[in-house]
Amino acid sequence: MTKGLLKSFLLHFGVLFLFLYGAEIFKKNKRFEIYEIPLDIVDISEKTVNKIDNIKKKNKQKKISKKEYFSPPVVRSKPKPPEFAVKEKKKDKVNTKEEKEKEKEPQKKKDKKRMESILKSIEKVKTANKSNDESKKDDEDIINEKEEVKNVKLGEKLTISEKDAIRRQFYRCWIVPAGAKNLKDLIVTVKIKVNEEGEVYSSKLVNKSQLKDPFYRAASESAMRAVNHPECKKLKVPKKKYETWKDIILEFDPSQSLN
């Protein structure tokens, strides 16, 4: 009786486990799809490698030289202040020193008080700045956290502007098959999986059965090129809403491209 119960429990647990996590856990890393190519792959000769390396090195050097060009100029000598201006100031000071000292005696006390208050306020500002500098990162983190908390509180769904940001990103990457026949029938759906960094690591066509039609095949390839485009490999998405955008269904609709 107990054995039967145990077997039944294990079996049901197994079924439950499969439903929860799916059979994908048994598969190996699915990030990369390997395509068979009817080719004998030949090692690239050393010369070719060297060529590419050299070009890359040259490019790096060029970049470095460009950086030097844009770096701020080094100060070698400071310009001397104009002499006449200094003299005039000194003369003025000498002439008026005694007269002013007498006149300013009562004022000095006021000034001292003012100075002290100013100094105090400066010190306060300094300490405040210091603490600001030190805690700037912490503050930013706190603000971010607050925003994140707000975001989370606002709900798991992406806002319209967040969705638009993703849309706009794909507008740049997708070359529309404009002028193709029956554009209304060329709507391509692609399912993408995105990691927490916003990087697309898997993309799959949904309507593979239509690939026999050369027009649909071309349209679907253009959509896949958009998904694999370097500028669309990393999506602009809010990190804290990962659960919302880790699986995205993209629907490429060229029917409005000529409007």
């Binding site: 992406l158 849309r167 794909f170 507008y171 997708w174 529309v176 995205i248 269904i249 609709d253 409005q256």
Partner: peptide, 11 residues
């Protein structure tokens, strides 16, 4: 799953 329709692209 999040669904996003791309109705424009570059020509």
């Amino acid at each position: 799953e999040l669904k996003i329709d791309i109705t424009r692209g570059n020509t």
